[in-house]
Design a protein around this nucleic acid. Structure first.
Length: 557
RNA sequence: GCCCCCGUAGCUCAGUGGAUAGAGCACUGGUCUCCGAAGCCAGGUGCGUGAGUUCGAUUCUCACCGGGGGCGCCA
């Protein structure tokens, strides 16, 4: 259990025992909020529960606080509990306990911070899910970093996580894409063919057409249009998906499932979900189309599920089937969809669908990541995949590297309209905090290497020698990781991880400046060993944090 | 017109209804006999506006102002 929760439970038991001894009046369930005070003199943890209870208990906050403090059971973790200000109860961690955590960290590895708050609940994180009509562009990288980071956090928090990419291999855009590829294919075959008004004009499709021609040749080029399209669409999709997969793999992202939209229609999901909606009275036929009656559950309008017999389901129709599959068929306890801002108009409708399927809509969380403005110097660059002015995600990865992408995109909350200056990211690497954080890790490794080269064994070091301000500050920081994971998982906010990583790095650098680790003075042999234990624990925490963020922890730079 | 997101330091961004609102970048000045100076230390300004709820609001509610996005039988 993470320290913050332990403190909260201490407060709850203290309250209960104070009430049991009639020192405080009876009240219902209380979930005290425990926070980290901004001021160091206010301790490591703090609760304002006494102030919150003042009116219902009809007592002065400080009186309540006094009763709680007197009822707190002593633990090895907490050294001091005090009352301050209008009624805050402040907790200070025990230095001995902090030092002992070094051993805990070194024995368990980063798993010392793993939690059971997820209690094995199954949770699906669906992210990226870009139409397979071309390579990922730089705007998609944000969603990739967020979804992956979130999945890693939930995993560390004890959820049973499934990462999924929804492949839109059916529908109109896919048809237009296949037609575009066919035109380029014919052109590669030396035949006359023109792109339609809606076609994908990108260079990528030209290359794809040429590749398909060299693979399939005139045998397909000489077929009539329908047969040729048929022959081309599957390999076109495969190649494009392979391209997308390759980019994500470069980012170290692996999915458990690539879920096909087509399979919803080919299988039973579409029909079954429709039947369920019909039974529940959310479907009606009108104007030759089948409608979802969103207006029955507070939506502004109804939406088309099936456009007509010939034209089949709308994307919304298959999305209903998809969420039916997620919740009813596969039975996930929770589902998180990470969507780009251009889909936000779809959020309320999707929640309504889940509701109308008889599933608690709270089980579905949709995280919208806002548009990224990419800048080249002072110039803002706009992107639109359907026009030919996007920069491929691979180019961004080439320029700044996957680690920097993970860090920079995770650092901002998904809701911010963030700016990403391409030239700055390329040229001024020292401005990038990712280097600061990774450098700190590399430096720790350098120290451990140096110790190893000098044959220093430190397993039996005595951590009680670690008493300086910087050493204790570092230990405090390292022990925050479980709290940070808990909060990130609970709030579904991955951005706390890079901020934490930065704070660890900063505390490390201060420690490094203030405390000589490997000393050549024989009199320092014992403190050297103790500090090496701390360095090793710090390395474990920092590397573990970076890994959760999807980043590498380099041993050298 | 309706809906969603955003507005915090010169710039990019954190901030869980709590105590004196924080980092980075940029700017200035210090700082290296041994483990990596890509470092460390010191310098200061700000919650878009107006109400409301609350013991307490950057945080919650409403209105307004400003910026972005979305309102299709496209996805």
């Amino acid at each position: 259990m993470h320290p913050q929760k332990q403190i909260a439970e201490m407060v709850v038991s203290a309250l209960q025992s104070a009430i049991a001894s009639n020192s405080l009046p009876e009240i219902g369930e209380v979930a005290p909020s425990v926070e980290r005070p901004k001021q160091a003199e206010h301790g490591d943890y703090s609760t304002s529960v006494a102030m919150a209870l003042a009116s219902s208990m009809r007592m002065a906050p400080r009186e309540i606080a006094t009763e709680i403090v007197e009822s707190v059971a002593p633990t090895s973790m907490v050294q001091d509990v005090s009352i301050a200000g209008p009624g805050f109860i402040n907790f200070k961690l025990n230095d001995e306990w902090l030092r002992s955590q070094i051993h805990v960290i070194r024995e368990a590895g980063v798993e010392f911070a793993h939690l059971d708050v997820g209690a094995g609940q199954s949770i699906q994180v669906e992210f990226v899910s870009v139409n397979p009509t071309g390579p990922l562009h730089i705007g998609h990288v944000r969603g990739a970093a967020i979804g992956n980071g979130l999945a890693n956090i939930l995993d560390a928090a004890g959820y049973d996580v499934q990462r999924e990419y929804y492949v839109n291999d059916a529908g109109n855009q896919m048809r237009i894409f296949a037609e575009s590829a066919y035109v380029r294919f014919l052109q590669a075959a030396g035949k006359d063919a023109e792109l339609g008004a809606e076609s994908y004009p990108g260079e990528y499709v030209v290359e794809l057409g040429a590749e398909l021609y060299s693979e399939l040749g005139n045998a397909v080029a000489d077929l009539d249009a329908d047969e040729a399209m048929e022959a081309i669409s599957a390999p076109a999709l495969d190649r494009t998906l392979a391209n997308i997969r390759g980019t994500l793999e470069r980012m170290g992202i692996e999915y458990d499932e690539w879920f096909s939209e087509k399979s919803l229609i080919a299988g039973d999901d579409f029909d079954d979900s429709l039947k369920l909606l019909e039974e529940r009275g959310y479907v009606s036929e009108r104007e030759g189309a089948l409608w979802f009656l969103g207006t029955k559950i507070d939506l502004e309008s109804d939406s088309v599920i099936i456009r007509s017999k010939e034209r089949g389901p709308s994307y919304f129709g298959t999305d209903i089937a998809y969420h039916y599959n997620k919740f009813v068929k596969r039975g996930f306890d929770r589902v998180i969809n990470v969507w780009g801002a251009d889909h936000h108009g779809h959020v309320a409708r999707m929640k309504a669908v889940v509701d109308s399927l008889g599933v608690d809509p709270e089980k579905l969380t949709i995280i919208i990541n806002q548009i990224v403005n990419f800048k080249k110097g002072d110039e803002t660059v706009r992107f639109n995949k359907r026009k030919d002015n996007f920069i491929a995600a691979d180019e961004l990865l080439d320029a700044v590297g996957p680690d920097a992408c993970h860090y920079i995109f995770l650092e901002r909350t998904p809701g911010t309209h963030m700016e990403f200056d391409l030239e700055l990211a390329k040229a001024e690497t020292s401005e990038n905090p990712v280097f600061y954080v990774q450098y700190a890790h590399a430096r720790l490794c350098a120290v451990l290497r140096a110790a190893s080269e000098r044959g220093i064994e430190f397993e039996d070091g005595d951590v009680s020698l670690l008493t300086t301000h910087q050493e204790l500050a570092l230990m405090r920081r390292l022990n925050e990781l479980p709290d940070v994971i808990a909060r990130s998982a609970e709030m579904l906010e991955p951005h706390h991880m890079p901020h934490f990583a930065y704070e660890v790095a900063r505390e490390l650098q201060r420690f490094y400046e203030a405390c000589r680790v490997i000393s050549s003075d024989p009199a320092d042999a014992e403190i050297t060993k103790a500090r090496l234990l701390l360095v090793d624990a710090a390395r474990i925490v920092l590397a573990g944090t970076l890994n959760i963020m999807g980043m590498n922890a380099p041993e050298r730079m």
